[in-house]
Design a protein around this nucleic acid. Structure first.
Ligand SMILES: NC(=O)c1ccc[n+]([C@@H]2O[C@H](COP(=O)([O-])OP(=O)(O)OC[C@H]3O[C@@H](n4cnc5c(N)ncnc54)[C@H](O)[C@@H]3O)[C@@H](O)[C@H]2O)c1
Ligand SMILES: NC(=O)c1ccc[n+]([C@@H]2O[C@H](COP(=O)([O-])OP(=O)(O)OC[C@H]3O[C@@H](n4cnc5c(N)ncnc54)[C@H](O)[C@@H]3O)[C@@H](O)[C@H]2O)c1
Lengths: 205, 205
DNA sequence: ATTTAATTGTGAAATTAATAACGATTGTGG
DNA sequence: CCACAATCGTTATTAATTTCACAATTAAAT
């Protein structure tokens, strides 16, 4: 896999999502300008991003949606991502029920909780295991990413279990920074910070 | 409010969160190096960010935590942010119950749903109103930010209601791009894209 | 009082990302 | 078949951000 600007990767995933929608609407071609309208970016930005993946557009017509989508996916979506969830509380339950995590792109394959009342249950075909079973169960699921949705004070021990289970990616919803070996990638999603930074944007105008 | 690099603002909010924790632990001083360890950034980055707000550190000792915190907050946390929620489903219910949205920094003040069974109920002291009441209720709450947590196909109409209610900020959890006037700020949180981009990071190593 | 070592603060360099400018291509209509 | 206008793709330019190098400061040790 060649390496592209990090931002390009994120936007490319947005393009794929958009192209999916356009396909559903029965459209065949789309121009960089139209994509810019939909995604709230600029047409130049979009052409620049796409140019990373080769010459795929046709002057006067734009991009053939199906073709563009398949080329982009080749670079950013080689195969299904399998995720496991740690902490089936308020947030975890919502995530486990999210249809966006039960499709051909992302599949949730197992969940873990310390609460004995939850262990053994199933939500949306996802079985809930005890935390102790993680290092044994996770490898069998072929998961690549673990989600941390436990109380903040247990985020580090959960991260340790995730690492011990062999996962290389973590999405951390707790408002804490976790320590992991440097070959493990962490994406922190701190909702409070998102809201506060948006508020700063508003104030500064 | 002066304007600082956008990235600096986000990190500053992270520093404030970290300083809060250190204070709770009873610490008095912290060095840029220690902050770097905790936040997983570099010490230079941290000093550079802080230098935007004046000379606050002391060589040989580091930063006095209480003082640093109060200076940073002066720039990024003038007062409580009030938020209202649209869509009290799986995700919305989790958010409404999140303690992080019921403190002196962020306060959820109202929720809205079209489901008659939910309207009139209360979760965590937050009353659920009907969508029709939004333009009347929201202004009374002094809210600044609206959250979109309705099914994706209703995101645009919800955005329209939020704008009509006079809010200048939107946090959009649906996997769609919404159209709003240019003086309204939108923060899109697309979990699927977060997961997929993390997966790209993993693959590229 | 002087030295030393740790630590901050900052201008300059390097990197990364976005924007602009413009040439190249090609479907369309005459 | 030719001119035209729309659209892509690429190179150059500018802007934002991070990293580097090092001077300035000062608490602590002697
Ligand atoms: N609720 C939200 O909308 C929201 C939003 C942003 C961030 N968060 C963060 O997500 C995390 C979970 O939030 P929540 O509202 O779902 O909390 P919750 O208390 O509802 O759920 C926590 C779950 O983790 C399990 N758990 C408890 N102790 C555990 C341990 N030691 N190890 C493993 N699992 C344990 C509990 O059994 C429970 O099922 C918290 O850190 C919170 O700060 C929540
Ligand atoms: N569940 C998750 O963890 C999750 C994660 C990421 C994104 N999302 C997105 O968040 C949104 C909500 O997800 P969810 O799982 O809570 O869905 P949900 O179906 O559980 O909840 C949707 C809520 O919105 C209300 N609603 C329905 N139609 C409405 C309308 N026209 N106007 C206003 N409200 C309406 C419903 O009554 C319901 O309470 C979706 O767009 C989803 O894609 C959800």
């Amino acid at each position: 896999m060649k390496k592209f600007p990090q931002k390009t990767v994120t936007r490319t995933l947005l393009y794929v999502r958009t192209l999916d929608n356009l396909l559903e609407q029965g459209k065949k071609f789309v121009s960089s300008w139209e994509l810019a309208e939909i995604t709230d970016l600029t047409d130049v930005q979009i052409r620049k991003d796409i140019s990373n993946f080769g010459r795929v557009g046709r002057p006067r017509l734009g991009y053939e949606i199906r073709k563009l989508k398949s080329i982009l996916e080749e670079y950013v979506l080689q195969h299904t991502v399998h995720v496991v969830l740690f902490g089936v509380g308020n947030l975890g339950s919502a995530i486990i029920r999210y249809p966006g995590f039960h499709n051909e792109k992302i599949k949730m394959v197992a969940a873990f909780d310390v609460d004995k009342k939850k262990v053994g249950k199933k939500i949306r075909d996802v079985k809930i295991y005890s935390f102790d079973e993680a290092t044994k169960v996770v490898p069998k699921t072929h998961a690549e990413i673990g989600i941390i949705a436990v109380p903040a004070e247990h985020s580090q021990e959960t991260a340790d279990i995730i690492v011990a289970s062999g996962l290389r990616g973590i999405v951390n919803f707790t408002p804490t920074t976790i320590n992991v070996p440097k070959d493990v990638f962490v994406k922190n999603i701190d909702l409070s910070i998102e809201f506060l930074s948006l508020f700063c944007d508003i104030q500064r105008t």
